[in-house]
Design a binder for these strands. Sequence first.
DNA 1: CCGAATGAAAA
DNA 2: TTTTCATTCGG
Length: 367
Amino acid sequence: MPVERSTPSYRSRRSSIAESVVEDDESLGELLYPDFDPETNTSAHVAPHQAIRPSHGRKRPDHHIPRPPNAFICFRSEYCERNKRLPDGEIVRNHRVVSIDAGHAWRDLPAAGRKKYEDIAKVKKELHAQMYPNYSYSPSVPRPGVKGGSGKKRKASDDDCDYEERAPQSKRRRSQPRAPRLVVDAGSPALSLISGPLNEPSLAPATRSSAPSPELPRSQTPELSPKSSSSYESLDLVLHTPAITFPQVAEDDDFVPTSAIPPLDLYAASSEKNDEQIERYQRSSSLYDVGSQFFKADIPSQTRDLCMWYNNDGTYFEPKADAPLPQSSWDDYKAYGLMPINYEEVQFSNPFELEMMAQFIHMDRFH
DNA sequence: CCGAATGAAAA
DNA sequence: TTTTCATTCGG
């Protein structure tokens, strides 16, 4: 349980926050989109056509897609949440100070603590990749002058930072080999977590058929940039993903790349096959099935990467390379004293993710 | 809009 | 290697 200690000194309060950040696994749910405000419908991370305005003040193109947060940013966000829950007098309101504090706490963080946020960032990054398959980071061109120097740091035009997915339309070659529209590494944690329940029960990397189904939904979305063949290994995972429908929002007058509306329509397969898939998915969505599919991996290191591990007392567990995790059954994991992050208890504040995760993640309560 | 931190990604 | 930008929100 999180312990909100109130301490007299600034320094000790800082470590108190850092400590509780590390120890509190219950707060994971707040991590994904902590800035989303349902009242104002604002978040820096909600999908572009949902965001009315960003939570921060900086000006951005109307349909700007923010970068996925890195591990430190994730850490800082949670650090911020902690800070806000401190007694009134102890809240640090100046965020320059918060950043400095968080930076110190970050460096003081043991490897296990950092890995927690690296994992979170990894998951967020891959969720981001699914929401915006054609996203590519394109920072504004650096001014000749130094950073703090003469030039303005950014302009407001949307050409300046085209996070929009226009690049593949105009700049990418269309003659590239067909790539899956969702591309992640074969062993990527988020994909495994999300699509795991849909895997074939005896799915093994060697036996997995990667033949794409002919009715792979092709929409207006342009193809991704070319990917290595290893990316295709996950294609069937994608194809077995149940359909998701997202709220359609009327386009406004501004530039809206067709590929961005809706950003997740890559999942919107419409055939009856989806019902089939969903049914199969629901049949296999028990905890044990999920566990057996998630954790039956024969490569311990890969297994370790599939989720964030916690000891039964709630403290973060860092697997050791020389101590392979159990692989046979869910009970073995319990006996081992481990439990993965329970996504069912994660509260996604972003409706986009809420819907997405609600359809994908069906892990029973684990206690 | 800026800044303060760290890190990912691109030029 | 250098620059932008992801997070937050008071200044």
